[in-house]
């Protein structure tokens, strides 16, 4: 078989695009480590921001705490409705009209830009309900943002469970909820957890929705629901945008990326574990 010029060129194109993406990720991570690494110390992790202007010295502890508060709150708000909706779609609705509509709505919700969710929660929580810029408003915004992610990933994890289990259980006359509880949910647990972790990583890095609902540059992040919190992504944005400290910005970015990638890698390994379970 002789190779034509087009063959050679297209092969080059495929390889270059594949490798370029690898290089980009490596470059991003190595550059962050190179620029931010030297400024990471136990003091940076465990201290509050100090110095004039504030943030040039000290650390980012309240921002880490605030981000954790925000994602935990988002999880608490969204997990139950998310799982119930997924169970409806996979077990109860199946191919019905209502399930079709709910699927479409959830799919569309997943596409809604996060700033729009921020806008909605700003009007509803911050202004109308009088919460002000607060942890509660931010948690709600992030919860709405990750709800469709949780639904879609859990639904798919449930649907991936062997259909024969449902058939066998059904023919014994037991109820759907019993089958779900005894067989389907335990069987899909790893996949569902993976989806949830992924959504938490997504929430931890989200900036736009908390920028308008929850974040402050200085706050104690005590966990009080009606007070503003600091958050890693917002802190990074301000450190850079207000020209406070480029070094601390790099270090904050590194901490944030580490946190998010840690959640992602955990999710990734859980979901490949789930795939092995499903193949058994």
């Amino acid at each position: 078989m002789k190779k034509t010029i087009t063959d050679q060129l297209s092969l080059g194109w495929f390889w270059v695009s594949g490798l370029l993406i690898l290089v980009i990720l490596l470059a991003i991570i190595l550059y962050l480590i190179w620029r931010g690494g030297p400024f990471i110390s136990s003091q940076f992790i465990l201290d509050s921001p100090h110095g004039v202007p504030l943030g040039t010295e000290g650390g980012i502890f309240p921002a880490i705490k605030g981000t954790l508060w925000l994602i935990v709150l988002a999880l608490v708000i969204s997990i139950v409705p998310g799982l119930l909706t997924a169970m409806y779609l996979s077990e109860y609705g199946r191919s019905g009209r209502l399930a079709e509509i709910i699927n479409l709505l959830v799919q569309s919700m997943a596409g809604v830009p996060s700033i729009i969710i921020g806008l909605f929660v700003y009007a509803l929580g911050v202004v109308t309900l009088g919460w002000g810029i607060s942890l509660l408003a931010g948690g709600l915004a992030l919860a709405i943002m990750i709800f469709p992610v949780i639904v879609i990933s859990s639904r798919d994890a449930l649907l991936a469970v062997d259909k024969n289990y449902r058939l066998v259980a059904n023919s014994l006359g037991v109820s759907k909820s019993y089958t779900l509880y005894r067989v389907i949910l335990p069987r899909a647990a790893a996949g569902i957890t993976a989806g949830v972790l992924l959504s938490l990583g997504y929430a931890a890095g989200a900036t736009a929705p908390i920028m308008v609902t929850a974040a402050a540059f200085v706050a104690s992040s005590s966990g009080a629901l009606l007070e503003p919190v600091m958050a890693l992504p917002y802190h990074l944005y301000i450190l850079f945008n207000e020209h406070i400290s480029l070094n601390h910005a790099y270090a904050t970015a590194l901490v944030l990326v580490t946190l998010v990638l840690f959640l992602n890698i955990l999710a990734l390994s859980l979901s490949s574990w789930q795939e092995r379970i499903n193949k058994q």
């Binding site: 594949g18 998010v260 992602n264």
Partner: peptide, 19 residues
Amino acid sequence: LRPVINMLTGIPSVVYGFL
């Protein structure tokens, strides 16, 4: 490559903006 691409999706947009 596949997990790498997955990780690229995970990096927050503010980090991309910052870099």
